[in-house]
Simulated scan of single mutants.
Amino acid sequence: MKTTTVNTLVQYIIWLCLIVFSFSSIVHANDNYKLGSGDTIKITVFGQEDLSIEVLLNDSGKVDYPFLGQLQATGKTLTQFQQQIHTGLKGDYLINPNVSVSIVEYRPFFIDGEVNKPGGYPFQPGLSVNKAAALAGGYTERASLTKIFIIRSNDPEQKSVNVHANTSVMPGDIITVKQSYF
């Protein structure tokens, strides 16, 4: 009986550690992610319903926020934007606001060339070129798996870079799968 209890406790601890590790890696990934046009975000100020909003970031990347006016969101991490709102509300409006900013929906990525259904698709964390191609109906018969190019949305020069099929894809990226001649 004691062995069963210990085994159950060990399984519970392992399960709890996996959840904590998964959550911390998601939080870490979002700490590096910069907001951009096309992202839908949710701003929550706990205990203040009138200050909690959900908004799609347009081309200007600004959010009309109660009491604070227009705030620039694009180019900032979730933590930076959250801190900006916290700082703006603290003092004049609230004593110690508890602000949370989260992504409801990432901006899409785009895939064209030798895939069955080229177009824009909703980004999903953990997306690779192969997974993106699968969302686009798979590669065509003439697709070259050595001639795959990405233009990164965060690259100011917008250079097309040759990548592998297991390369990570980010929101706003443009993937082009070239044709193979053999």
Rank of each mutant, 00 (worst) to 15 (best):
H86A: 11
L16H: 13
G126P: 02
S180L: 05
Y121N: 07
N162V: 15
V20N: 07
F109G: 04
G137R: 04
I111Y: 05
P171G: 07
I103W: 06
V115D: 00
F81R: 00
K90I: 02
G126H: 02
V10L: 09
V45F: 07
K159I: 12
T5G: 11
P118H: 04
I26T: 14
T79S: 11
T44C: 08
I19W: 13
L18K: 13
D59E: 12
L127K: 04
G47V: 03
Q48T: 05
Q124S: 13
Y181D: 10
S153K: 13
S100L: 12
Q84R: 05
A133K: 09
E157G: 11
A143N: 04
M170D: 11
F81M: 00
T79E: 11
T87F: 10
A136T: 01
A133Y: 06
L68I: 02
Q48H: 11
K42C: 07
V161H: 07
N7H: 09
I174C: 08
Q83V: 10
L35Q: 00
Y12G: 12
M1L: 11
Q179G: 10
S153A: 14
L35A: 01
G119A: 03
E114Q: 05
V161N: 06
I103E: 02
K34Y: 10
A134M: 12
Y106N: 02
V104L: 08
L16N: 12
Q48M: 10
G126E: 00
I151R: 13
S24E: 12
F109Q: 02
L71P: 01
Q48W: 11
F123T: 04
I43K: 03
S100K: 14
S60P: 06
T146P: 10
